[in-house]
């Protein structure tokens, strides 16, 4: 029983096998992709392994503290930022192997030509909030 974050990247992951940008797919291919993603989330909910998930807008701003009484400083977005997160899913599964299996399932979503995208997903273990009751 451990939680994992599955991260999908706009940028920063190695290129997928079926590397065709979405705007060059056919409308049917886009629908098939969306359907696959919905089905995946539904399966996860039914199996009792779903915790949370959201898509993120590519637009973002960097913010930092600039001293007492001063407004926060903002900057960006930076075009050169190498890593850009597109979305995330948190799962609660019995093993690391199961987390990998689910990530691979997500990576098999169909893309151009109806073939799997083979997209690279990042799997990150969530830190537990507390330690075990035995030392």
């Amino acid at each position: 029983m451990a939680k994992y974050l599955l991260l999908k990247h706009y940028r920063g992951a190695p290129p997928p096998v079926n590397d065709v940008p979405m705007d060059q797919w056919t409308p049917q291919e886009i629908s098939a992709h969306a359907q696959y993603m919905n089905d995946f989330a539904a399966r996860l909910e039914k199996s009792g392994e779903y915790v949370d998930g959201r898509a993120l807008s590519p637009e973002g701003t960097f913010v930092r503290y600039d001293g007492e009484g001063r407004p926060p400083v903002t900057d960006g977005p930076f075009a050169e930022t190498k890593d850009l997160i597109a979305g995330w899913t948190v799962i609660d599964v019995d093993s690391y192997e199961r987390a990998l299996e689910l990530a691979a399932e997500l990576s098999a979503a169909p893309g151009a030509g109806g073939r799997p995208i083979h997209e690279w997903l990042e799997v990150r273990p969530l830190m537990a909030e507390h330690c075990t009751a035995t030392e």
Binding site: M1, K3, E45, K46, S47, G48, E49, Y50, V51, D52, D92, E129
Partner: peptide, 12 residues
């Protein structure tokens, strides 16, 4: 277990 109630309901 810090999961949504719907998830736990499915698991059970």
């Amino acid at each position: 277990y810090l999961v949504p109630e719907a998830t736990m309901a499915q698991r059970i």
